[in-house]
Structures are given as C-alpha cells and as structure tokens.
Design a protein around this nucleic acid. Sequence first.
DNA 1: CATGAATGAGTCTTCATTCAT
DNA 2: CATGAATGAAGACTCATTCAT
Lengths: 192, 192, 192, 192
Amino acid sequence: MKSQTSLSDDLRADAARNRARVLEVARERLAAGDAELPMNTIARDAGVGVGTVYRHFPSREALLESLAMGGFERLVVEARKAADDDNPGAGLERLLRYGVRSQIEDVGLAAVLRSSGSARAETSRLRGDLLEAVGRLLERAREAGAIRPGIGADDIRRLSCGIVYAVRVGDGDLDEIERYADVLVDGIRPRS
Amino acid sequence: MKSQTSLSDDLRADAARNRARVLEVARERLAAGDAELPMNTIARDAGVGVGTVYRHFPSREALLESLAMGGFERLVVEARKAADDDNPGAGLERLLRYGVRSQIEDVGLAAVLRSSGSARAETSRLRGDLLEAVGRLLERAREAGAIRPGIGADDIRRLSCGIVYAVRVGDGDLDEIERYADVLVDGIRPRS
Amino acid sequence: MKSQTSLSDDLRADAARNRARVLEVARERLAAGDAELPMNTIARDAGVGVGTVYRHFPSREALLESLAMGGFERLVVEARKAADDDNPGAGLERLLRYGVRSQIEDVGLAAVLRSSGSARAETSRLRGDLLEAVGRLLERAREAGAIRPGIGADDIRRLSCGIVYAVRVGDGDLDEIERYADVLVDGIRPRS
Amino acid sequence: MKSQTSLSDDLRADAARNRARVLEVARERLAAGDAELPMNTIARDAGVGVGTVYRHFPSREALLESLAMGGFERLVVEARKAADDDNPGAGLERLLRYGVRSQIEDVGLAAVLRSSGSARAETSRLRGDLLEAVGRLLERAREAGAIRPGIGADDIRRLSCGIVYAVRVGDGDLDEIERYADVLVDGIRPRS
DNA sequence: CATGAATGAGTCTTCATTCAT
DNA sequence: CATGAATGAAGACTCATTCAT
C-alpha cells in the first residue's frame, strides 16, 4: 500500500504532471487577481484538454479547494500550535493575524474559508480539524480571560473573513492588513 | 418646473410606474439572494421591455445605486446626527450599529457602500457627504478619546462592510449582527 | 400662394427651426464620418423628440436625401452647364471631376447618388433632371468624338460612384481624388 | 503530423464537416446578397451551435476571410503569372479583368480586398503576396510604356474595387463588367 | 485516460419604430 | 404638432459541461 499524503500520488506520471500544470496555471490566474477561473481557459493555458481538467477537478469549487489545500493545512497547523500555546491569548492573536495575512496572500484559501460547503472530502476534514483546534484554543482563552464569552470557533472564522474583506474592499489599500487585524484582535477581548 | 427631489419626479405617470416596477422587481431578486440582476430577466419580471429598463437605468450599477438611494440618504442623515451628537463616542457607536444593520437589511446599499465608483452623480455626492460627516464625527471622537488615532472615515466604511460580510458569510446566522457589531465597536476603541 | 422652393417653407416657425436643427445635426454626424445616423441620437442631439424627426423625415433615406438636396441641385446645375458648353468634351471632363469631388466632400450626396430608389419625390425629379442633362451632354460628346460609343448617362453615374469608392476604400488617402478622376476621364475616351 | 495546407486539414472528421457547413451557409447568404453574416443565424442555418461557429471563426471578419481564401489564392496566382508574362501590358490587362470578374462572382473576396486589415495571418500574407506581384508587374509595365507613371500596386487594388463597385451599384446590370473593366484598362494607360 | 469539438442557455446591448400623452 | 417612453426583435459573445473520438 502506498502512503496516502494530502496530495494525490498513485497517479500515472503524465496524469500527475497534468494535474500539477492545471493547479499551477490556476494559481497564477488567482494571483493575478482573476478570480473567475474559466475552465476552458485554464485548460488551454495548461496545455491540456478541458476534459482533463474536469477529470481531476469535477467542479470549479473542487479546483479552488485543491488550490487552497496547502494553505489550509498550514493554517490548521498554526491553529493547533496556538491551541497548545502556554499563553492562549497570545496564541489567539497570533492565529488571527496569521489567518488574515494568509487569506490576503492566497485568494483561494479565502474563498474556501468563507464558504460552508466542501466539494472535496479533504476540505471537509480540514474544516473540522480547524474548528476543533480553534474551539480548544477559545476554551483556554476564555478561561484565561483573554476573550469575551459567547464567541465560538465559527465566529472566529466569519470575523476573520470579514476583516479580510475589509482589507480588499473598494480600491482599498492592502497595507491596512495589520491595522484592521488590530481591530479584530482588540474587538474580541472581554469588554472592560 | 416641478421640484427636483432625489427620487424621480417629473416623469410621465406610466413611466414612473414602470420605473417603480423595475425597482421593485430588482429589490425582490436582491432580497431573495440573487445578486446578479440580469437586465433581461428584470425586464420580463417587471413586465416591460428591456429597452425600458435601460432607459431608466443605463447599467446594472445605476440600477443598484438607484435601489440604494433611499437607504443611503438615511445613512447620511444618521451620520450627520452622530457628528452633531454631544457625545461623539455614543454617536459613533450608534452610527456603526445603524450602518451594519441597514446593510444587512438592504443588500443594494451594502453593494453600493462597498464599491468605490459611482454610476450616478447622486451616489457620488452621497458618498462625499457620508465621508465628510463621518470625518467630522471621527475628529470629535478622537478628541474625546473615544477612538484610537489613525482610523479615518474610509476605514470606518471598509470595516463596516467587513462586519456585514462576516454576518453574511457561509450559511451564517443573521442573528449575529449585534454581536459582530460589538467587535467593531470595541475594536476601534483606543488600546488600553 | 407662397413660392415653392426646394426647401419647405409654409411651416410654422418652430417646426421649421426643428427641421433645420435636425438637418444640421445630421450633417455634422455625416461630416464626422459617422454614416449611421441613428434617429434617436440625432433627435437627442438636435434637442427634439424622435417623433419630430420622423414627422419631418419618414425614414433615414428621406433624411439623407434632404441632406443631399443642395449638393444634388448644384450637381444638376453643373450638368446643365456642361451640356450647354461649346466644347462638350471639356464640359464632360469638368462635370466628372466636379461629381467626384462633391461626393467626396458630401457623404450624403454620395449615398443618394449610388442608390437607385428615392424616398422623396424631389429626389426622384432631380435624378431625372440629372440623367436628362448628362444624356444630352453625352450625345454631343459622342458627336464630337470625345467619348467612346455605348456609354450612357447611368454608366457615368455608376462609374463616378465607383471612382469615389476607390478614393475612400481601405485606409486610402483622400488625396488621390484627382489621380483617380484622371483614370475615369481617360478611361471613357474613344479607344485609339 | 499531417501536411498543413491553406485549408483546414488535421481536423476531426465531424469538426471539418461542421466547418464546411458553416462556410457553405455563409457563402450562400453572401451570394444571396446578404452581406451581414449574423453569427447566430449562420449557426442555426448550418445546424450547429453558435459556439461552434465562434470556435472555427473568431469573428465575422475571420469568417469572411476564410470564405475568400480560395479566390484570393487564385488571384495571387494570376498576379504572378501576369508579372512573369512576356508582355507586361497584356498581363496587366488580363489581371485587371480577372480581378474584377472574380470579385463580382465572389462577394467575400470583394469584401476582403477592399478592407485593409486582416483577421487571419493567412490573409495578411496573401495581401502582401498580391501587392508584391502587382508591384513587380507594374514596374515592368511602366518600362514597357504600358501604364502611366505614378500608379502603384495599391492604386490598382483600390481602382479595381471601385470598378467592381460601379458594376454593383444601384440596381445596376452585372453585364457591364467587361465594359467597365475597359474603362479601367484604358484609364491607366499613359496619357497621349 | 486525454482530448477538444460541440452545445446552447444566458447576458448584454442597440435601435427603428410606434403611440399615448 | 411635439414629445419621448416603450417596445422587442436582433445580434454579439461567453462559458460550463458533455461526450464522441
């Protein structure tokens, strides 16, 4: 039995190469600010047929989620580190800032994080992992008086997405990341 | 010459009726969660020809902005009231909550508020009015120590949009409005 | 009984003014190279309703012909002068050059000259007048041996339109007028 | 890899059939005097989806040029033959008559010949080939005293289009082809 | 498995023309 | 007479998705 990592191996060499090319092209488009990801165009740019794109990624959502896998995994790692931090308040702040920054850098991750459904089982699992870790972190943070009561793991997700949105909105300046993250960090503290 | 208010006056009776029907249909679609507003469909649903829609609203943006006019005007009124409030901190909080609530209730307003361009001169003017009033409010709030330095009127706009987004994101519960508004309100206070 | 000139009098003052404005605007568009003449646009630019344009000019063709009236009348005058010239060969050459030049300067005239139907009775009459005068001219030119046999008045019209077309074709240089007119002038001489 | 001729090769059988059907339908419309070539209608008449038409011909111009390819190639062949003729004057006359006749028979060719831009690289190349051959022909014709000085290859193109236009203009009789071609042939001779 | 041709619904947009006011 | 609102046919173009090769 081959090892099952988060990315597909056990693919014929050429199939794996095609898959990688599609992902690469899609990532470039996203990075270039084109959030449309038209399947035909992606296929053409990747030098494969549309059918091949559909074989690897049954829907645009699946493609997006595959694109976001890496960032999502790293986010879960960060969340677990935060949950295990001696200082849960500091861990929470660190996680929030990390979450905002990574969504700004990776539009795909932002897209996946803000949707509730999952096209891939993998994404679904990561979503659960993230909520679990953040839930654990929040519990400890609450005990430590670092966060107001009543804020759950999904609130953290939604508020992070909101702050990311604020950074992107209008013709806004992306430089505001940290300042807007400050608002989130301070806004969830216990009310004095 | 009839008086020229912000809403359509001096229009032939039937024209005014058509215009109103188009707006109504568009509002319904928006409320139903369809943010697309295809002109042909709107026309059909309103029982008018496409040309009629284009006559009244040269572009989807213009339609959206027309839809938002009323709410936008009320928001400016609120902003001015807040700017004139004896207690600028209280005024700011009231305005923030009002702004978030009104965007949740009126998807059109939210759409207009988050974009920076304007299809109608009217909208452009309102945008300016809002920024002016909020700017005045912030100045007073800063003097009163009710808000941290470095937050400008446009930051308020962007952060409000972000909070609205957080409320809507995923399949999220709209009931979180006040709790998420709390985060914004507390998050922009001076850091202790 | 009022005198009946080629242009409408016996119109109420405002009606006449409207008619004139429409013609003026249409002429400007033509001169600016826009051969489309959309009725709505013309009406708007002239500051009248579309209905008014249609009242004065039942069709775009009628408008075009009205626009061309002046130039057409001058062309008929030239043709008659040529027909009465002592030297029919010289008269013919003069007329050909005049015809080509005037069509290049007046796109409306060119459009009317190249079509065979007439929307206005006036145009129809002018067409007849022109053919008659040119016919007379050709007869004399043939007798004088200045033109080859077998070329009729309508051939002259069509060939002139063709030369005008040659001047306009492609991104061609309008300076070629005289050189292309030379070809026409020499091309209809008797074959040596 | 299959041989690459100017016409579509290496196409799937069904694709080639569709492409041919579209061309055929377009040719019929053109022959029937409809110069509009609306893509939707073409598609319907050819029994294919619009997308198929767009796949094969990205624009109406590209369609037109594809339609004209054959005739254009034959015209270039004729031009080269003329340029190599022992008697350049005779060659020129033959080419002029051929050019006029082929444009009358093939409206698509006429359309392509009169425009200066090219949608397809192929057309661009043919345009260059034609100008080159005609240029060579003219040079020899000038030396032989068969044509007046100052007439270049592009003048020949434009004048041919003009004569074709004269044949078509109004409700004119197509039988005039040869007589109008005579005018062109004689009109470019040296002036006596 | 890969290919990419084909499909066709869906949008946008323009304009000639009519007709109620 | 003048107005200009309304109509709706037409045409352009895009793209997700299917399926024959």
